[in-house]
Amino acid sequence: MNQGFQILTSTAPISVAIINLPNALVSSILGIQDVFHIANTFCIADKSRLFSVQIVQEKESIVNFQSNVPLKTTSLDLKQNFDVIIIPPIISDVRDIKVSKTLNTWLNLMYAKGSYICSVCVGTYVLASVGLLDNIKATTHWSIEQNILDTFPLVLLDIDRIVIEDKNIITAGGISAYLDLSLYLIRKYFSILVAYECANFLVVDAGRTSQKHYKNLASLSTELEPELKELLAWIKININQVLTLAILAKQMHVSERTLMRIFKKKIGILPTKYLQNIRVQMAKELLINSQKSIEQITFNIGYEDIPSFRRLFKKKTGLSPGEYRNIFMVKF
């Protein structure tokens, strides 16, 4: 939650528009509707002021992600007024997301009218595309972090947070963060008590603030040359060894300076940070897929200083190794 969080008070219904777009996730669209309807029915005592939710789309026919579920929708209209507008999760390569001039104009007009403009997951890419995230703090799904940074350098991206509000723009992280966004809005328009009552009804955690521990630290968003792919594969095989910049450069038959330049250009980070990321990611997998002790795992991934690794793990994931295992290891 942002430090400037304020509950909005009014007696008017809260009008919410969920924008249906190509490859939008229908389960999330309906899920957002359901959360607000549950809040209206079971959690909000004063029935004179409730959420009023519409699904709005630009075109008459929209093909959603892997779904033929019919949605009751209305069309975009420049005369419309909404308190809240939500771009839902979109399951698509961001390079295939196209924002029309009509939607661009509509979103910017609604923002100028005073609407809260929200996005979930890859929906952040839509807001960035229409210029609404220039010099705005925002979050998104961890898998498109580098793409956002490269394509929209004016976005003040903080990938670790689940929900961020900045200047009437509210962004939420991964796909399931539509729940966090919905609860955030319930808290914003009513109270923290109503939001927690709704969270308890849904049996979800209302206190999530970070998505650091969900991020795949080994994920790469760009195509790599065969030589670099070979090096990364070699690193995984030899991760339990001492791996210095000089050793990596020799393995790829380039100078250390050239290796740093290649990593920065193709992966977005320097080799030392990549090694940290891959080791933490491998530790995460071992923590939930094996019974090895934290000490054994530390040695298996090439660390000898256990306290140092614990600090690195906590920095990268927001959790200690023990906490991570307790939360994510499947227990039967």
Rank of each mutant, 00 (worst) to 15 (best):
residue 211 Q to H: 12
residue 128 A to D: 03
residue 82 F to L: 06
residue 254 V to Y: 10
residue 287 L to F: 11
residue 31 G to K: 05
residue 131 G to M: 00
residue 199 A to H: 11
residue 293 S to N: 09
residue 13 P to K: 04
residue 167 K to Y: 02
residue 162 I to K: 07
residue 63 V to N: 12
residue 178 Y to C: 03
residue 101 K to G: 13
residue 232 L to Q: 03
residue 283 A to R: 02
residue 51 F to Q: 01
residue 170 I to K: 08
residue 226 P to I: 08
residue 331 K to V: 07
residue 166 D to A: 05
residue 215 K to T: 15
residue 79 K to A: 12
residue 158 D to H: 13
residue 303 Y to I: 05
residue 180 D to S: 03
residue 1 M to K: 07
residue 164 I to P: 06
residue 273 K to D: 15
residue 113 K to L: 07
residue 92 S to P: 09
residue 209 T to M: 13
residue 66 Q to M: 13
residue 44 I to D: 10
residue 79 K to M: 06
residue 38 I to W: 15
residue 316 K to Q: 12
residue 311 R to M: 05
residue 73 T to M: 07
residue 267 I to C: 12
residue 115 S to P: 10
residue 6 Q to I: 14
residue 81 N to E: 15
residue 198 C to M: 07
residue 120 V to D: 06
residue 133 L to I: 01
residue 182 S to M: 04
residue 86 I to D: 02
residue 303 Y to A: 08
residue 306 I to E: 08
residue 308 S to T: 12
residue 105 T to I: 05
residue 182 S to D: 08
residue 289 N to C: 03
residue 111 Y to L: 01
residue 137 K to S: 04
residue 203 V to M: 14
residue 143 S to A: 06
residue 54 Q to M: 09
residue 34 D to A: 11
residue 86 I to E: 03
residue 89 P to L: 07
residue 147 N to D: 05
residue 60 E to L: 14
residue 147 N to I: 07
residue 195 A to F: 00
residue 273 K to H: 14
residue 226 P to D: 12
residue 233 A to Y: 07
residue 143 S to D: 08
residue 199 A to G: 02
residue 11 T to M: 02
residue 226 P to A: 10
residue 53 V to D: 12
residue 120 V to N: 08
residue 65 F to C: 04
residue 275 L to S: 09
residue 53 V to F: 06
residue 206 A to I: 14
residue 184 Y to I: 12
residue 277 N to I: 08
residue 31 G to S: 06
residue 310 R to E: 14
residue 268 G to Y: 11
residue 191 S to P: 00
residue 94 V to W: 07
residue 157 L to D: 02
residue 200 N to W: 14
residue 287 L to E: 06
residue 151 T to L: 00
residue 180 D to M: 03
residue 209 T to D: 15
residue 21 L to T: 01
residue 232 L to Y: 09
residue 272 T to L: 11
residue 89 P to H: 02
